[in-house]
Simulated assay, not measured.
Amino acid sequence: MIRPEQERFWSHVVKGPESNDCWFWTGAISDDGYGRFWIQRNGGQQAVRPQRYAHELATGEPLPPSMLLLHSCDIPICVHASAYLESSHVAPGTHRENMLDRAQRGRYRDRQTLRLGELPRQVRVQRSLDLRTVILDHGWQPELISAALLGVEITHPRLF
């Protein structure tokens, strides 16, 4: 039995208990650390970013291909979208706005420096995969989620 597209989408989303928590994508993750969701469009399959799909569900409007979604939470697999920007973790923006946001948050590399906030692509991908694994194996566990986001082994001893 084939499940409806929206039902299939939501089956891959784990929402935190608080209204301002992230909604984590637990489906496929691409080699850039962002999720992938397959949909049927124009007689064929198409891969879309889950946050774009969530944004379209929340607002009722598809984004033009030139428009990006900027994450306020800086978590690539967060799909928390709302029609109300003040409660959404993703907001439409241009490429320029995304680059400015990246620079303001210290998430970029240039010829002279490596900013502390930027992760190499392979580290970002691994953290997305680790976070997905934690969510799938343990559900919503803030301590484990935090460890995965920081790139710390779950079994690593804690001081506090």
Rank of each mutant, 00 (worst) to 15 (best):
Val123Arg: 11
Ala83Asn: 12
Tyr84Lys: 13
Thr59Trp: 09
Arg96Cys: 03
Pro76Ile: 06
Gln126His: 08
Met67Phe: 09
Asp137His: 07
Gln126Thr: 06
Ser88Gly: 05
Leu116Asn: 13
Pro76Leu: 12
Met67Ile: 15
Pro62His: 10
Ala81Gly: 03
His80Gln: 11
His71Glu: 03
Ser88Phe: 05
Gln122Glu: 15
Gln112Leu: 12
Leu69Phe: 11
Glu56Met: 12
Thr113His: 13
Leu100Thr: 11
His95Cys: 05
His89Thr: 02
Arg102His: 00
Asp137Pro: 00
His138Ser: 14
Glu86Ile: 03
Ser128Glu: 08
Leu129Ser: 04
Ser66Leu: 05
Gln122Arg: 11
Leu129Pro: 03
Pro62Gln: 12
Met67His: 08
His80Thr: 01
Tyr84Leu: 13
Pro92His: 08
Asp74His: 10
Cys73Asn: 04
Met67Ser: 10
His138Trp: 14
Ser72Val: 00
Ser72Gly: 12
Arg127Leu: 12
Asp74Tyr: 08
Arg102Ile: 04
Glu118Trp: 13
Leu116Gly: 14
Gly117Pro: 03
Glu61Pro: 00
Pro76Gly: 14
Arg107Ser: 04
Leu68Lys: 12
Ala83Ser: 15
Leu57Trp: 01
Ala103Ile: 10
Asp110Thr: 00
Val134Cys: 09
Thr94Lys: 05
His55Ser: 00
Ser87Phe: 09
His80Phe: 02
Gln126Trp: 00
Ala54Gln: 02
Ala103Thr: 08
Arg109Leu: 14
Leu116Trp: 02
Gly106Asn: 03
Gln104Leu: 09
Ala91Gly: 02
Gln112Ile: 04
Pro64Asp: 14
Thr94Glu: 07
His95Thr: 11
His95Tyr: 13
Arg121Leu: 13
Gly60Thr: 06
Leu119Ala: 12
Cys78Asn: 04
Gln104His: 10
Tyr108Met: 02
